[in-house]
Design a binder for these strands. Sequence first.
DNA 1: GGCCACTGTGGGAGCGCTCCCACAGCGGCC
DNA 2: GGCCGCTGTGGGAGCGCTCCCACAGTGGCC
Lengths: 356, 356
Amino acid sequence: MSQTAPRPDGPHGGPGAVGRGSARPTLEEVAALAGVGRGTVSRVINGSPRVSDKARQAVQSAIAELGYVPNRAARTLVTSRTDSIALVVPEAETRLFSEPYFSDIISGVSAELAETDMQLLLILVRNQRERERLSAYLTAQRVDGVLLVSVHQDDPLPSLLESLEIPSVLAGRRSDLEPLSYVHADNAGGARMAVRHLLRRGCTRVATLTGPLDMEVAQARLGGYRRALEEAGRPYDEGLVGLADFTEDGGRLAMRELLERRPDLDGVFCASDVMAAGAMQVLRAAGRRVPDDVAVIGFDDSIVARHTDPPMTSVRQPIEEMGRTMARLLLDEITERGRARRQVVLATELVVRESA
Amino acid sequence: MSQTAPRPDGPHGGPGAVGRGSARPTLEEVAALAGVGRGTVSRVINGSPRVSDKARQAVQSAIAELGYVPNRAARTLVTSRTDSIALVVPEAETRLFSEPYFSDIISGVSAELAETDMQLLLILVRNQRERERLSAYLTAQRVDGVLLVSVHQDDPLPSLLESLEIPSVLAGRRSDLEPLSYVHADNAGGARMAVRHLLRRGCTRVATLTGPLDMEVAQARLGGYRRALEEAGRPYDEGLVGLADFTEDGGRLAMRELLERRPDLDGVFCASDVMAAGAMQVLRAAGRRVPDDVAVIGFDDSIVARHTDPPMTSVRQPIEEMGRTMARLLLDEITERGRARRQVVLATELVVRESA
DNA sequence: GGCCACTGTGGGAGCGCTCCCACAGCGGCC
DNA sequence: GGCCGCTGTGGGAGCGCTCCCACAGTGGCC
């Protein structure tokens, strides 16, 4: 590692001789070239206002000339800021997500981070062992903040984050008492909108397929269903509620039971698109036409919704916007530590197609 | 250059302010507790064999007692290894992918990395500016290796990686002369299988919808189509080739044209599921029954394939396995630098449903 | 005996940065 | 004149680690 030799070849190095091993310039070299001290260069880089214009100029052109990029490790070592945040995804969830969910969240987060020089670390947790490793990891303060995509009420991760006092933002919430910052869609509102649409369409016996009720999302959607009925003066009938789990198979199963219990139902609000897709298959197999005999609405407006037959009416949530917002909240929380937690609810919207 | 937000260099909290779970123990403290020198502790941590069992034992129990976790930044500073790899995804691709593609790749990569202490950095590149930033980023040697999900022949990123001599692995390849390491599915074989299936089924005029031909994937699938025809002694008829772009709209458009040109076609091999879904809609609108009048096969076996009406026969590629393999190759390339590049082709498989 | 090689060990040096203290220079005020 | 404060600056110290050199101890060989 003899980097003693002054490197005569700046960024202008031969066109062929690409910058292979060429040592990266250090802050010290920038200082020397600019004719100032290390401190001043550091101040310029970190945007301190206490620098004369002249010095700033000199430093900036030295930086440009050398192609200087600060060494992250060195900075982290002294500041113990890592300038990186982790997106933590329990892998079990991955399977559940309406398909573009995951990439849309990432896309939003990444878009928001693009202007920053924060790095995005992706951590999938697939089992207990990895969960423990993650705890150790987080405890070792290796990230400045955490985005957690998780919604189960008994998930231990949020509490861990809470107790470690690491800035964090959840996608979704555990309950309406959630103490951590979170961003979520207006699930209740979306469900309510969907059910009102069914009622307005003339449905009189509207059923619902729910997600697993240990998730707040599922509860909220069920709540919206109930609310819409009540607002319309209809009774809430438990016989019309099919407990399922967001999956296609679960949807099929629950739909079959529902159909047996209430053969006269004429509308179904499903808490996920894939459940709705499963339900539509079951309905067709039972000889019901969609939407003529039974109208169906899904939730997520995922790619599946556009491809069922008939195309599915569904509640859209602004997933990418959720990602963006999560990132923004997290950055805020990191810079102004100790500030109150923030919670954001984003509007949902009903995308009407042919199934209802 | 200094695109960092101004960070007032005043209040930094100082030691103790942030020190949550009390300061992390350092290697020095471990050494003291174990009654050995720093060097020995370092050797134990890094698995050097030149340590006596006695010392090793002492160090290990000291580590356990203190809950010591090495400081990554300090290590990186001196070794200039970052112990992290980047997964680079041009965001435009994101939209193209058969839906679970992205998360499956990630899932595979992450699974392979779980046993390592490599970190996974996710970098989406959405425009020219970000592309340039990425170049700067990579040039600054901030990752040990790069996984690149990109397949366009004119993508400048692979060449950049090549010239920077950063270990890298591509998902897919630019051409069959690809010099970088890559992992891809047997696209030609899958296409061939699909077309043979159509022929065996009795189709006599088999058309195809292609992807954009500046991608090797698209070419390979077209090649497989052609090969299957030739093997069966059928002529390759350009009139039966619909140039499209992997998207649903593109599929619809190309299918319509194809139908006009060759109203007698009785089978279509589509180079992506969503194109196949679009094609099926067009066929139905034109009064053709699937599969009775026209048999249809897609590619990807994505979630869409399971939800079309009728459910779609499709070629499955082992995406998660691709992710795993990519990660494995990259780790190899990082540890044994300078080794020959490796290229892996994974088998595809035909998932037969009702559309063919 | 002397010499060698080889193992295991301690600890100095130094990676590239930020933090902070000291201090020069320059007014403005008493 | 002396004193203040305020701005801009240089550079020492030190973050926690790895690398490497020096060296003690142990045996084997001539």
